[in-house]
Structure formats: structure tokens, C-alpha cells
Amino acid sequence: MNLKAGPVAVIVKAFFTALYGVPLLWIVLTSLKKSSDVVGGSLLFRPTTAAYARSFNGDLFTALGQSVTIAVGTTALVLLVGVPAAYGLARTRGWVASLGLGLLVVLQMLPQTAQVIPLFSLLGQWRLLDNVGGVILADAALLAPFATLLLRPFFRSVPSALEEAGAIDGAGVVRTFWSIVLPVARNGVLTIASITFLLAWGEFLYAVRFFLTPSNYPLSALLSQQVSAFGIDWPGLMALAVLTSLPILAVFTATYRLLRDGLTVGAVK
């Protein structure tokens, strides 16, 4: 393969660097401006942390706590059901596996707006509205199909011979899974844990609908509420966007290599 970058490749890379770099830069720059400096998008301004100072209050920390609870709870629940399901689907054949796979594909593709309407009614009947547990359950059901489908190829690539060796040594199915299969598929599990955390952190539709009181909102829902309001305080909104994105940056930095290699396992042979 011709690995030297030609002039076209340089132009393409410059274009994408600008397309993805400039918005990020603008979030940070705007968050450091005064409201009066926002118009025109000038690069020359005196940076101020006033927007951050305005953001730091009790509401922010409540929202941060809700975000952490939802993202951690959802990730734990998705792993709890998704890891065994992905293994089960990787190792069974026949109509159960086909039906399971088909249903996962359908669930993964459903528009979230088609789920939010019936779930609003069902969570109401089950007295789970305005309850962080209800949002975690809904988020987990939303993300589990995707996580399971992404993880299944990792288990398929674990050689059956390893498990047979375990069985010969007298280990039961659960023991074989736990101490032989799971360590081999560790990267896959970490990949879906990371991606589930990132998606649950950003989810806002369920949060906005299923929390009836805005004081219970996580950061993403708070942000969605402020950006659709009239007369937006842009520096304040961008400061909130930066604060919402910092945990994402931390998780992303820690797991980037896994995401880069793991996301493509299911889609590429």
C-alpha cells in the first residue's frame, strides 16, 4: 500500500482537523468569554472564568451526582445482563440463537422516541417515574442490545478448545466461563463498559421525560434544557458543556485504544 500521504490526503486531513477541531476549540473559548464578547466570534478577548463561577453551585453538583449514578448504574446493569447474553449467543446455535439475534437487532434499531412513549406510561404504572432507578432501567434496556451485539464476536473468537480443556479438568459451565472465557474476552468487556458509560452519560431524552422535577436532572438533561431556552447565555452554556465533557475526556483517554480496535470487531471481518 502506498503509505505516503499525497497532496489530496493532506487537504482531506486538514479539512477534517478543522471540521472537528474548531467546534471543540470554540466550546472552550466561548466558555472563557464575557457575554458581551460572544458576538462576532473574535479570537481577541480577555479570558474570564466568570461563566464557570456562575455554573458552580449546588444544582451543578446535584446534576453531577445524578449523572454519575445513572452512568455507573446503567453500565453495571448492562454488563450484568449483556456479558452472559453475549456469551450465550456466541455458543448456542439453532432457532433460539437466531431469534435472540434478530430481536437484538430490532431493539437496537428502534427509534428512542418510539420507546419513550410506552415507557412513560409503563414506568408510571410501576411507580418508577421521577426515580433514578427507573431511568437506569430504561437506559440499560436501551443500551443492552447494542452492547450484547458488540460483545458477541469477542466470545466467538475464544477457541472452544480452551473450554473443552476446562471441562475435561472438571470445571462446570459457570466456572469455565468465569475463569477461562472471561479473561480471554476481557478487552471486549472493557470496550462495551466504556461505550455504555459514554452513551449513558450523554443520554438526555429519558432523563428529561422520566424525571418530573428538573432538580433531579443529570448534566446532559440540564444542558438540553438550557440550550432550548430563549435568550441563551452562551458562555454559561459552553462552560456547562465543558464540565459535562470532562468526565467523557477522562474515560475516553483511558479507553481510547480499546474503543478504536474494539468498535470495529463486529463490523469488519
Binding site: P118, S121, A144, P145
Partner: peptide, 22 residues
């Protein structure tokens, strides 16, 4: 190994498939 599918089937059945019927 079918038993491995159970927890996922319960969660996605109750909060994924059932809402679709609803």
C-alpha cells in the same frame, strides 16, 4: 448456556419488547 441468556431476556423483554406491544 441457554441459561446465560435469561437475565438479558428478562430485562430486554420487560423494558424493550413489552413496551413495543404497549
Amino acid at each position: 448456556r441457554w441459561a446465560f441468556l435469561l437475565p438479558g431476556a428478562v430485562l430486554m423483554g420487560v423494558l424493550g419488547l413489552f413496551p413495543l406491544f404497549q
